[in-house]
């Protein structure tokens, strides 16, 4: 019975996330979902590129600030590394360290979101660049906002995992859950790499 099975670091399987059929299915299903999300974000990017600067008195190269974006990028990139650390500890059957590194990931992710909220607030109040202001603004907020919503969902997911499993320790039932959560988190970072490149950097170059 999955929940009862007790392991030691020596007996813990090399790939705990795919030891059960459930785990294998979750692993594959999640990668496929990420494939679909790739096309989803591509549609958002494509629309953004088509509507860049359109209908807006304020243009991309006047709007974006490199310092803020760099800070956000560093936070998210580091959070991706900390989630790798968490899975490393999962593979080594070190539950406490895994939880700790996931918690740090959540903090960094929350920091990213806080900066993003500040950024949006700044645009709306300083530049009157709101969701309804123009086609460009609608496209921008939908693309970057959808990414932000994904970050928020990821944070809620990881927090739920941390809380729910705090008294359980690691087993073959929750290992796939942690693994897919970390895959999701990496994917969000992948999308951000394209966002900061295509939206912010390309926007600032003009």
């Amino acid at each position: 019975m999955k929940l009862d099975e007790k392991f030691t670091p020596q007996t813990w399987p090399v790939s705990p996330e795919t030891q059960t059929l459930e785990g294998k299915n979750k692993f594959l299903g999640f990668w496929l979902f990420l494939g679909g999300e790739t096309v989803l974000f591509a549609s958002l990017f494509a629309t953004y590129l088509a509507l860049k600067d359109s209908g807006s008195s304020i243009k991309a190269n006047e709007l974006f600030d490199p310092v803020l974006v760099f800070a956000m990028t560093m936070l998210l990139l580091t959070s991706s590394l900390t989630s790798v650390y968490a899975i490393y500890h999962m593979k080594n059957y070190n539950f406490k360290k895994m939880q700790a590194w996931f918690f740090i990931t959540v903090l960094l992710g929350a920091g990213f979101l806080a900066l993003e909220v500040y950024e949006f607030y700044h645009y709306v109040h300083e530049y009157h660049f709101g969701f309804k202001s123009s086609a460009f603004s609608s496209a921008y907020y939908t693309l970057v906002g959808t990414h932000g919503a994904h970050v928020l969902f990821g944070l809620c997911w990881i927090i739920t995992l941390l809380l729910r499993n705090s008294k359980r320790g690691l087993n073959l039932y929750n290992a796939p859950k942690y693994y897919t959560a970390s895959l999701y988190w990496h994917f969000i970072d992948v999308v951000w790499v394209f966002i900061f490149t295509v939206v912010y950097l390309m926007g600032m170059v003009g």
């Binding site: 359109s54 202001s133 086609a135 460009f136």
Partner: peptide, 23 residues
């Protein structure tokens, strides 16, 4: 996009605000 345009005031397809219906 269509939902946002109709229900929340977005401008993806609103030509006057820079939108584009071919999208």
């Amino acid at each position: 996009f269509l939902m946002f345009d109709r229900l929340f005031g977005a401008n993806f397809f609103n030509i006057a605000m820079g939108g584009n219906s071919i999208i």
